[in-house]
Amino acid sequence: MPRREPRRRGRPEWLYPLRRAAGRPRARLVVFPYAAAGATALRPVLTGLPDEVELLGVALPGRERRFGEPPASGLDGIVDAVAAELAADPSVPTSVFGHCMGAGMALVLAQTHPRLVRGAVVSGRNPPGAPRSTSLDMDDADIIAFLESAGNTAPELLADAFWRDKLLELFRGDAALGEQASQVIGARPLGQDLLVLGGGDDPYVDPSGLSGWAARTSGRCEVLVLPGDHFFVIDPPNIPVITRALGDLVLDAPASTGGDSGGSPRVGRP
């Protein structure tokens, strides 16, 4: 487990180390968690990156080291707090990564603080205008069905009353954040390079529509479709392929200029 960092001046820290770089980091990757999870859940996908890449997780309230706090309800406050911590060391080239709900939050950070973010990884998320995998009008049964069918929630957690209620609370809060993110992302385009990841059998995200992300950025857009369902991103056979693609983006992404480079997608399968 990453070493727990002290809080500064009594305020919660939003960023924590998933893995420290060897020496001065050459690049930084900031990881946003998916709904009802913590960023640590995505660490297996990332540890194969070169040692010179610093990996930072975003600590959302209500989970992991901030388990006792109520879930956050405002996206702006989260994004601004993360940006403030990144701005303390702006010299390290920074990219962002998120899966599903987390991808939306990562893109909002890239859009609203473009000088801090050079590239973005969008995993398991439809482009704006396409149907979303979750919505605010889902009742408890809908949410439980989603968590069961998505396949990444232990059945024993859903069977336990305490953990089931906790997951429902987190999921509802995160669904609200995801809705807010969709509104921001759809309002104007990005300027960063995008790496878009999708599962070939994802029932919630249409892999054939992922090339639509190219229209959302003036930078380059690479789409990579891998075997698997919604949680293809943590399937062990996919991890080496994802790691190579992440390394290419994180270490080579040019600074965002906001110019128009055409946004042409490069679509591939492993």
Score class of each variant (00 low, 15 high):
135 S>N: 13
125 R>P: 09
258 G>R: 03
73 S>A: 15
112 T>R: 14
186 G>K: 06
246 L>M: 06
184 V>G: 08
29 L>I: 03
256 S>F: 10
151 G>K: 03
154 A>I: 14
234 I>P: 07
125 R>D: 00
6 P>G: 10
208 S>Q: 12
194 L>W: 01
73 S>Q: 13
234 I>W: 08
197 L>I: 02
187 A>F: 03
210 L>A: 03
218 S>F: 12
109 L>N: 10
53 V>A: 00
239 I>P: 02
25 P>S: 07
88 A>K: 03
197 L>H: 01
198 G>S: 12
68 G>R: 03
210 L>N: 02
165 D>M: 06
165 D>W: 01
228 G>Q: 05
100 C>M: 03
12 P>T: 15
254 P>I: 11
188 R>E: 09
156 E>T: 15
179 E>A: 13
270 P>Q: 06
89 D>R: 15
118 R>M: 00
222 E>H: 08
200 G>C: 07
178 G>I: 01
90 P>N: 02
211 S>T: 13
188 R>C: 12
1 M>V: 15
212 G>S: 05
173 G>C: 05
43 R>C: 08
195 L>G: 10
172 R>A: 07
32 F>G: 10
224 L>P: 02
33 P>W: 04
258 G>C: 05
263 G>K: 01
180 Q>G: 14
173 G>S: 05
184 V>S: 07
191 G>M: 02
94 T>Q: 09
96 V>T: 12
20 R>Q: 06
37 A>V: 10
14 W>Q: 11
181 A>K: 00
132 R>V: 09
100 C>T: 07
264 S>M: 12
256 S>E: 15
8 R>E: 15
80 D>M: 11
72 A>Q: 08
126 N>A: 13
215 A>P: 12
62 G>P: 07
256 S>D: 15
120 A>Y: 01
73 S>P: 11
62 G>R: 04
5 E>Y: 11
18 L>F: 00
266 R>F: 09
78 I>P: 09
257 T>M: 05
121 V>F: 02
169 E>N: 12
82 V>P: 08
184 V>R: 06
184 V>W: 08
34 Y>K: 04
239 I>F: 00
